[in-house]
């Protein structure tokens, strides 16, 4: 929680302190926000993909690989905990969820099937955000070259572009660009997605994360990470507590008793599941092979129900009675 706010402050206001953390950061540290300390990897990857095939397989390709490598390296260390603890858009969504909770308004539920379809969108976006910049320099499948106004296409529709500058009081991204049809369509799409982001995350926890191509990109490297969410199926009673509290509705965490690696594509490693698990050693986070945080019975009662331990101490009167 505290870490999340610090990360938020760093990634939004870091520029004031002249912090610069590079261009391969897997985040919505958004360069459209002028005080941002780094650059979202998605924008780099889109720029780097905006090259002809020839140069991609040459010198430029190396640059592409190097930035990909540094991106992956970060991932090997922290895995998707990025999403749960660092990403500023995630933090904003958590605040919106808190607000809804305070207001006593219910979150919405989806049935499994439509939820599954919804979640596939992020992979489509990921493919598009690589494909469109490539198509600006190369003719793909004989299509004419795409307009340069489509540069960094995902950024144009990403809510981070509009929202993060707002936190430094910059409203310059909140507009529709009427230069030509392409810019008009893309910038209106951007505003529509922003509206969906705000409304969606009000009714559904971490709504935007289901569509986030960054999340999809992370997941491709998740298996190799040192930080892992592990389940011991033998200790699981399938009570479903973990699934109940999961902000992104991962069913497998409750129902899968065969596999041990539990980071799924939507998982943001917030570890609420571990807090909600009442079985000793059923769920745990491990870094390399060291357990960092484990589920325990006592932990369940004190963390989830805030039971005071007084009640669990034998009262003197009763003992004296006997």
């Amino acid at each position: 929680m505290v870490f999340q706010i610090l990360a938020f402050l760093l990634l939004i206001y870091g520029g004031y302190l002249s912090i610069h953390i590079g261009t391969s950061i897997p985040t919505f540290a958004c360069p459209y926000n002028q005080e941002c300390p780094g650059t979202c990897y998605l924008i780099s990857v889109q720029h780097q993909a905006h090259n002809t095939w020839a140069s991609l397989f040459g010198f430029r390709g190396k640059a592409f690989l190097i930035s990909l490598l540094s991106f992956v390296l970060l991932f090997i260390v922290i895995n998707k905990a990025w999403c749960g603890y660092v990403c500023p858009l995630g933090t904003i969504q958590d605040w919106i969820t808190k607000l809804r909770n305070r207001m006593g308004i219910s979150f919405s539920r989806y049935d499994d099937l439509s939820f599954k379809r919804l979640k596939a969108i992020k992979y489509v976006l990921l493919v598009l955000l690589l494909f469109i910049p490539l198509g600006m320099s190369n003719s793909i499948f004989g299509l004419p070259l795409f307009s340069h106004d489509l540069g960094a296409p995902f950024c144009q529709i990403c809510p981070g572009r509009v929202i993060t500058p707002l936190f430094i009081g910059d409203t310059s991204q909140l507009f529709i660009d009427f230069t030509n049809t392409t810019t008009m369509i893309m910038s209106s799409l951007g505003i529509i997605v922003l509206a969906m982001f705000l409304i969606g995350s009000f009714f559904k926890k971490r709504f935007f994360c289901f569509f986030c191509p960054m999340s999809a990109l992370h997941y491709l490297f998740s298996r190799f990470s040192m930080l892992r969410l592990i389940k011991n199926g033998d200790n699981c009673t399938k009570c479903g507590n973990c699934y109940r509290v999961c902000d992104v509705g991962i069913k497998a965490i409750a129902e899968d008793i065969e596999h041990s690696y539990m980071v799924k594509d939507d998982c943001m490693m917030c570890f609420k599941c571990i807090e909600a698990c009442p079985e000793n050693d059923c769920l745990k986070v491990s870094f390399l092979t060291m357990p960092v945080f484990k589920s325990t019975e006592e932990g369940f009662f004190s963390r989830n129900l805030h039971l005071n331990s007084e009640m669990q101490k034998p009262s003197k009167t009763i003992i004296e009675d006997e």
Partner: peptide, 26 residues
């Protein structure tokens, strides 16, 4: 008394489903 209730948001809309889960799933 073994199975537990895990509530995510302490409002009626989440407490009742949490309760029903406790009596069914495990």
């Amino acid at each position: 008394l073994y199975d537990t209730v895990a509530v995510d948001e302490w409002n009626m809309y989440d407490m009742v489903p949490a309760l029903s889960d406790r009596y069914l799933k495990a």
